[in-house]
Amino acid sequence: MSLLASLFSRRGSAPVARDRLQILLAHERAAGEGQSDLLAKLHEEILAVIAKHVAVDRDKVQIKLDRGAAVSTLEIDIEVPGLKSDKNGAPSSASARNAAGATPAAAKPAGTSTDDKDKPAIVRN
């Protein structure tokens, strides 16, 4: 049993390697064709738009990236201090999510790390 199980569980590390490589290289090749700064640009421009209206503390900006086969997500979590509409006085947060992939329509609901009382801005690529 244990021998069979170990034989069975060992089968399949090569397919995993193949799938991981295919996803990674799809992204790295796209990066090689000049898209490498797309995320950086989005990050800068989104920050600039928000900074036009409120003071943004650069240290309070969190960026998360998850590169997938069909869909990639970029989360930019910006803590916005003292919004006037926010009567509680607690910091608000805005989040932008970028779906960059073959099927952008498959973008999942945004905002896993977003403060729910604010509506996140969704940016599709």
Binding site: R10, R11, S13, A14, P15, R18, L21, L25
Partner: peptide, 13 residues
Amino acid sequence: RGEMLRTEDVLEI
């Protein structure tokens, strides 16, 4: 045995 990338895998990639 599926323990190593096959030739086809590497070629495809």
